[in-house]
Design a protein around this nucleic acid. Structure first.
Lengths: 127, 127
DNA sequence: GTGACCTTAACGACGCGTAATTGTGG
DNA sequence: GCCACAATTACGCGTCGTTAAGGTCA
């Protein structure tokens, strides 16, 4: 973690290597980029550089296209999968917030209570 | 609500009407069915009967295909959209459960407390 | 008996991946 | 100066929607 950027974001692969890693034709990667499915970094000279995260995205795209989806479908599915992930995180957060809220409520009452043994004498006059 | 089935599930439209309502060719509806995108009811004679819900599904499919998705993509997107809807409901449920849990906690303490004015005399001996 | 439904097959248009071409950068 | 990159274009294949042909139910 001494790196300047996280490993999965370091753009290190040129297009030929990225294509090999993802198991597709280099030209296919250029098509994906034009269609907005990946967005690799660029060198000053204009060459594409793919990160590990880009490669994962490419593999995910491969899964979907070889399942028969076209590129528009892949785009939507990726967006929806991200949405699902976000919602699942939100559920986890909501559950945790629920636990905390109950806990806080308990604390509040405990703080307000005064220990009987050391401080008060109680006489119950009821019936 | 005196109907045997909910309105949106009553299969009332023959294929030509369904196609007209959805704005597509009847043959297209048969393709959708073969691909598993809709599943209209059948009469005893074997004719398809589409419900209002089916029509809505067909319109949704139209939206997606005319946005450029192919049928596999449509299938996945519909499934994911259902998942998103389910998760959103789950979030709402989790939030409600959180409120209830806090409320229950409050009740618990109130039940355990004994009203001072009517039942007890309290002497605070603390310094 | 005449429509509207059923299924299967054929056709045209379009999207996607690959290959070819030409030009540029390391 | 060579090899890999970039961008554009061309080609083949598969998918999708429509149309057509032939059979069945109301």
């Amino acid at each position: 973690m001494a790196d300047r950027v996280a490993d999965s974001r370091r753009a290190v692969y040129v297009i030929s290597v990225a294509a090999e890693l993802a198991g597709v034709h280099p030209q296919t990667l250029r098509i994906y980029e034009r269609k907005g499915l990946v967005d690799p970094a660029r060198t000053d000279g204009g060459s594409r550089r793919y990160s590990e995260g880009d490669i994962e995205q490419l593999r995910r795209i491969q899964d979907l296209t070889s399942a028969g989806l076209n590129l528009e479908g892949v785009k939507r599915v990726l967006a929806l999968e991200a949405e699902v992930e976000r919602l699942e995180a939100e559920i986890a957060a909501a559950r945790e917030a629920a636990r905390d809220a109950v806990e806080q409520t308990h604390r509040k009452y405990r703080r307000d209570l005064v220990p009987v043994s050391k401080s008060i004498v109680v006489f119950d006059r009821r019936r």
